[in-house]
Nucleic acid binder design. Structure first.
Lengths: 166, 166
DNA sequence: TATTGTTATACTCTATAACTATA
DNA sequence: TATAGTTATAGAGTATAACAATA
């Protein structure tokens, strides 16, 4: 097995943003019940997930990694702090709002990971672990590529005029 | 070039739903200006995009393809119809709300495609057309795989107990 | 009786700007 | 003067349930 593709894609399926959205929707639907059962929203879960890999992170980093705008993050901090899942950490730079998981927060994170593991294994088996790894690599590289493009958007003056409206 | 991966992924980057979200966010940011300049929201654009590949589609199909819930789609139909971009089509089954692009709608679609083409080309060049094709195949296959899993979620009774909370 | 879509409602997220505090 | 984060606010999407119309 391990085919890369067995059928031609319809035109609609060649749209990258839409393909990403639909794949995410399907994948999320698979794991969302485990998030829901702990009364977490998906953005809240992303914050816990990000903090689980780090000792502590500031709001700016979390906003970037979790794709959450600062105003939303402020609200999310409030909710997670009130529930005792995260706590603020002192920081040299007093402007920064640094947070980390509490013990309770880490326990909840581990619970969710453990409960969703069977679904992940089934997915890895059905889709292929190798292809899953390839997909993750491509996704992360794509993001890096686009971000690099955005950082230096006007390197090629040849293309500049094309952006103009008719 | 055309490397599959040059660096080890951080733990956080191995989360499939999050990787999909971040890649989509980056990709969308690249193309969103062209949607914005026509006063379209992303969901509205997805509807136009889906209709551009078909003669006419009903609400249910559009909801699935565009990842939009029925209540949102009702509102989107209203907005696009008022602007003369889509129109209702008669249908044998009177329950179905079938729509298609108007000439004006198709013209706007073509405008957006044409204006965003340079950005797409730059991305394809920077990321590699082959890898982009591979990514699209993997994304669409992933979606199919998950949907198949969801259709028959309890085939393996061995895993059923694991879903229980402790 | 099942399906399709709309309406109603509550909540959350998105997005921008204005503001505060700190560097 | 620039940066980090919060507050305020408007708008759009998310999600469910209840309903109407049709099959």
């Amino acid at each position: 097995m391990q085919k890369t593709s067995s059928r031609a894609l319809r035109k609609f399926e060649k749209s990258l943003p839409i393909a990403l959205l639909r794949s995410r929707e399907a994948t999320t639907r698979l794991f969302k019940p485990f998030i829901d059962s702990h009364d977490l929203t998906m953005p809240q879960w992303r914050v816990l997930r990000a903090l689980a890999d780090a000792d502590a992170l500031d709001a700016k980093t979390l906003a970037e990694r979790c794709v959450i705008l600062p105003p939303s993050l402020t609200r999310i901090f409030r909710g997670l702090t009130q529930r005792g899942l995260i706590e603020q950490v002192e920081c040299n730079d007093a402007r920064r709002h640094m947070v980390r998981l509490t013990e309770r927060g880490r326990a909840m994170f581990e619970d969710v990971v453990q409960e969703s593991e069977p679904s992940y294994s089934k997915l890895a088996e059905a889709f292929g672990q190798e292809r899953l790894d390839t997909l993750l690599d491509l996704l992360n590289d794509l993001r890096d590529t686009v971000q690099t493009m955005s950082d230096a958007p006007q390197q090629n003056t040849e293309t500049r005029r094309v952006a103009g409206r008719r």
